[in-house]
């Protein structure tokens, strides 16, 4: 009984460590493969389309609504203190620092990450990847690296769009609907949002999230059991693991970036 328990524990620990090792090795190969993507921008462009352009709509619409909700909720709370002029600061700070990078990364994991895993997993299941290897084409360089690079590049752009649209949405609700002075909305924002501390850190956050989400999505696809059930499990794991890593990393990054002030 005890021995059995220890056995399963040891087995699981070993399995998760070997998986971590495979993931790290996969990451090293992928990153070193990105160099060979640059001479062939068409590969990257195609992936930018499916990862970035197709996520454009969901990101902008979600951003607009998140900004509008922030505007409403912020107004209700701030007007209790007679401080509704600072609505712009509240909306912009929460979007640029936290919600922009985090929510767009979560949406990105759900929209693009799951698609990447399913695509790679299915390629593996139909033995397209082994076929490429047979033809002496490195599937990492040809398939994985362009997708990784596209995810890494798209994420900061999507997060910036999310924040920008959200701030406009907050302004629409705040000064259009609730009567906050438009000049105060923008000027308070400009006085309190710092380029270095807020904008640059937000972009850095979204770069980290893009890196991690693309890594997880591609690895889960590449490492999936090549059956229909295996692919579906891998897709689920992508979304769950991405969400965990995004939220966990966000806490660590926030503690590091905004700790001393």
């Amino acid at each position: 009984m005890m021995i059995e328990f220890l056995q399963t524990l040891g087995k699981n620990t070993r399995a998760s460590f070997t998986k971590l090792g495979r993931a790290t090795f996969f990451l090293i190969q992928t990153v070193s493969g990105t160099a060979s993507v640059l001479p062939r921008p068409r590969l990257l462009l195609k992936q930018m389309y499916s990862v970035g352009v197709l996520s454009f709509l969901i990101i902008t619409i979600s951003g607009l609504f998140v900004g509008m909700v922030l505007g409403l909720q912020g107004y209700y709370t701030l007007s209790d203190f007679g401080a509704e002029e600072t609505l712009g600061v509240m909306v912009a700070a929460s979007l640029v620092r936290e919600l922009g990078p985090v929510v767009s990364a979560l949406l990105f994991a759900g929209r693009a990450g799951s698609a990447l895993t399913a695509e790679i997993g299915l390629m593996k299941a139909t033995e397209q990847l082994s076929g490429m290897e047979m033809m002496a084409v490195d599937p990492i360089k040809r398939i994985i690296s362009p997708r990784f690079l596209a995810g890494l590049l798209s994420m900061p752009l999507l997060a910036a769009l999310f924040s920008a649209v959200g701030i406009i949405g907050g302004q629409l609700v705040g000064s259009g609907l609730l009567g906050v002075d438009e000049g105060a909305y923008w000027s308070q924002m400009q006085a309190n949002i710092d380029f270095q501390d807020d904008i640059i850190n937000g972009v850095l956050k979204s770069l980290v999230f893009g890196f991690v989400t693309s890594w997880i999505a591609l690895f889960e696809g590449y490492d999936s059991v090549p059956t229909s059930e295996g692919v579906s499990r891998a897709t689920t794991r992508t979304v769950v693991n991405s969400a965990f890593s995004i939220l966990g990393l966000d806490f660590i990054l926030t503690a590091l970036m905004f700790g001393d002030d």
Binding site: A160, L161, S163, I167, D194
Partner: peptide, 10 residues
């Protein structure tokens, strides 16, 4: 969007 954030917001 990035440009908007840096010029108009910050």
């Amino acid at each position: 969007g990035l440009f908007f954030l840096s010029m108009q917001v910050s």
